[in-house]
Design a protein around this nucleic acid. Structure first.
Lengths: 245, 245
DNA sequence: GTATCATGCTAACATAAGTTATTGAAGTCG
DNA sequence: CGACTTCAATAACTTATGTTAGCATGATAC
């Protein structure tokens, strides 16, 4: 099952026809990108909506003097910006971290969805609202949390999101970000990211080595990061997820 | 003309019927709130979408230990969270800064829009996408800009947004935020906000006194804040806005 | 297999921003 | 009108985080 379907089904129950529609769209117009290349650039006219099929990517913005901020991460199953094509130009860039494959979803696909696939439309709204909530949480993260809280929080978020897409097991996941990436995402310097990771390691909250992240005690990491998963809205009618589901 | 209509018409040309529909919705189910009170609280079930008719409000999040972050400001004409009612519970609170009046927009209103008012639907998508872009820009602001750049940037943003809703003249606007509000929005301490404002004053970039903000040289303030208005997407087919329109 | 480069790690030092505290001015309420 | 409270301003001091630099490791390329 595709990561997208898997993720959306955490929120909305999709029909066989819904799943078929999504899987069909995900199989057309596929492109692949090498690591550390741009999928789209600030200033360009947005044409399609991108669905991440595999690999990690990020959205970033850059100041004239070169300072760069990663403003979000894209994991498999994530959709870049619903309806972005109504805007004139991109206000940010999208770049890959690892090798990435994407499917380009044209405008017509969304017309079809809103005409005949109400459950998918609802699921897409959920995706949009959750992305907005994540962005708000990042604002909170950068504005109020200390370096180690911030790092712990980010690791929790990525772990939860990977798990939602079926990409993490009980306590570990593949983790391709470099310390430089983490620095650009957290607004910390590379050196301080290193110090912060050492600190989390020393507290036995993380094991991070060779592109693999292990979280031996998720509960403790969550409380170290003041992480409350409510903003991910991992619940569907009549059901609540706990930290382990 | 209402602030909402005025703002949306910067992006989409609305018909008389569109404007009537919006103004009618804005006149029903109106509520007023005193300054410094909550319109909605984290954890509650969202019921309606709120449209700000008058006054300033903000979205904020709070950590268990009391640290508070303002994650966005709402100005007259702003809509709080389109389609928020599909989520189980609020992941943030909405509070007033000044006295505020709002109109509650029920689910059925949006059903009507998507059934019979395509231009409004597009305008609402624009609103949603711009809000997302603003939130990303705040991430950038908190992650990369220094205190004075950050403050300059925030003031530019608020000024542009007020102007868009018809609430600012050439170089000044009403400005009800306290230094404590600015601190919660920028992730700085109150004392440092004060220092930063003094610095901007000393450079003749702002005059801020008694709830009134004057920007004697917007161009210079923009460059001090590395402010690029592209993320506000102030453009419509066949037209570009410059800093003074 | 050696050269090269990206990445991770650490130390020493610099600085932007936070903290605590005090004061005065400006509103607001009885 | 005086009593309170909020807000703004400033000083003195502390601290978290940034900067620069150097070295080690491991991967990749020739």
């Amino acid at each position: 099952m595709s990561h997208l379907v898997r993720k959306l089904e955490n929120f909305v129950r999709l029909s066989a026809a819904d799943r078929l529609m999504l899987n069909r769209a995900a199989a057309q117009r596929v492109r692949t990108f090498a690591p550390r290349t741009d999928i789209a650039r600030e200033g360009e006219k947005p044409k399609d909506v991108h669905l991440i099929l595999n690999g990690w990517a990020c959205r970033y913005k850059q100041l004239e003097d070169g300072r760069r901020q990663i403003v979000s991460f894209f994991l498999p199953g994530d959709i870049c910006d619903l309806n972005i094509f109504i805007l004139r130009e991109m206000d940010h860039s999208i770049g890959t971290i690892t090798p990435v494959s994407i499917a380009d979803l044209p405008r017509e696909f969304f017309d079809e969805i809103s005409a005949g696939y109400p459950r998918i439309a609802t699921a897409f709204w959920w995706e949009t609202l959750v992305n907005a909530a994540i962005q708000r949480e990042w604002t909170m993260n950068l504005g109020q949390r200390t370096a180690s809280e911030r790092m712990a929080h980010l690791l929790c978020e990525l772990f939860f999101r990977l798990r939602l897409a079926g990409l993490a097991d009980d306590s570990s996941c593949s983790f391709p970000l470099t310390q430089a990436d983490l620095a650009e995402a957290t607004g910390l310097s590379k050196v301080h990211v290193n110090r912060t990771l050492q600190e989390l390691r020393a507290s036995n909250l993380i094991v991070l080595k060779g592109k693999m992240l292990v979280l031996p005690d998720l509960e403790r990491l969550m409380s170290a990061g003041l992480f409350n998963a409510n903003y991910l809205h991992l619940d569907r009618e009549g059901r609540q997820l706990d930290a382990n589901e």
